[in-house]
Computed example of a mutant assay.
Amino acid sequence: MEVAKQIGTLLVFLCVRNSVFGLVCYDCGRDTVNQQVKCNATTTCPQGQRCLLQTLVSSTDGHKRFQMRCGNLEECDGVELLPVGKRAVQTRSLTVQCCTTDLCNGVASSGHVDPSASTCNRDIEVMLEDSTGAAVTDHQILKQFLQSMVDHMNIGAQNNQMGLSTYDTNIDHKWDLDKHLTNAELKAALGRLTFNDHNKNTADIHRVVDFLTDHAFTHINGNRNLFSDSVVIFVNQNSHVRLRDAILNEQHKLNGVSRDVVIVVVGSGQDSPEITQLYQLASSSGHVLHVPSYSNLAGLELKLLSLLCH
């Protein structure tokens, strides 16, 4: 059953399939966020409540704010709309959506795009290490992880674009930022992605930085001047990382093209001095993700996206 009510600029939806109790919902209280991925807290709602997602859209510039929590039937039905003030009602459109499955007020389920993704549109360059540090099964897991991340994005010429390259001691540029401009095309390309499986155990970050700063984010490779650039570099912990001596110069050069540089290190054990030095290329200490294995990437899609859209 779906009920829709129009109240001035207020559009309220109620989606109820059955009577579900004790739902687990994303819940950030009365705080609002500019991206749904930034609300990671969850709670078990009281019996009879539903997962609520409130979206405020500015009528002046179109920017969105989201509130995620549990909601009672009256709120879901528009009877007890949240007090936003007269001025807010005049300048914003308010949508309240309620649903009855666990965590349904967050990122949409597989096959759908996260409604908040349109608030963060980027040119994203992905760099994947291709060396002896990862097995064939690891590569498959990595491709599935990236496909899952794409499920939570809007891909298009006016939305997010993603370029991709693999590297070891050289760069193998797979596709430009504007090569695949739909979610389906990009996911299919990721599915076809091949690794060279070089017999090398070296990750030449020096070449990666040069490629990113001199080639990846250029107009000929699909870069858009009006959109911010983001970088994610995957590296195996047990690889030999090759860096320039002047790491701060590398950092300055890379941060000159992107303020959101994320380093994802895969592997367990003690970090080598080179890996520790590599962390300095990230935009901040919070832009470093370290997982013990490729299988541990599952579930980090939203975390990575939130860092790329910091």
Results as ranks from 00 to 15, higher is better:
V126M: 14
L128S: 10
E129N: 10
T132H: 01
D138R: 01
D138C: 00
H139A: 12
H139F: 13
Q140V: 14
I141F: 09
I141C: 05
L142G: 11
L142K: 10
K143H: 12
Q144W: 03
Q144M: 11
F145K: 06
L146Y: 06
L146A: 12
Q147T: 06
Q147W: 00
M149Y: 06
V150G: 10
D151W: 01
D151P: 01
H152T: 14
N154A: 15
N154L: 09
I155Y: 07
I155A: 04
I155D: 05
G156Q: 08
G156I: 08
A157S: 14
Q158W: 02
N160C: 04
N160V: 05
N160K: 06
Q161N: 04
M162F: 11
G163D: 00
L164I: 10
L164H: 08
T166H: 08
T166Q: 09
T166G: 03
Y167H: 04
D168S: 15
T169P: 04
T169L: 09
T169A: 07
I171H: 02
I171T: 01
I171R: 06
I171G: 06
D172T: 11
W175F: 11
D178N: 14
H180W: 12
T182H: 03
T182M: 11
T182S: 15
N183G: 09
A184R: 12
E185I: 03
E185V: 07
E185C: 00
K187N: 05
K187Q: 11
A188H: 11
A188T: 13
A189W: 04
L190F: 11
G191F: 04
G191A: 13
G191H: 09
R192F: 03
L193Q: 05
T194G: 12
F195R: 10
N196R: 13
N196E: 13
H198M: 12
H198L: 13
N199Q: 14
N199A: 14
N201A: 12
N201V: 07
T202G: 02
T202V: 15
A203L: 13
D204E: 08
D204M: 07
I205G: 05
I205A: 05
H206P: 01
V209T: 09
V209S: 11
D210M: 00
D210S: 10
F211H: 15
F211I: 02
L212Q: 01
T213R: 04
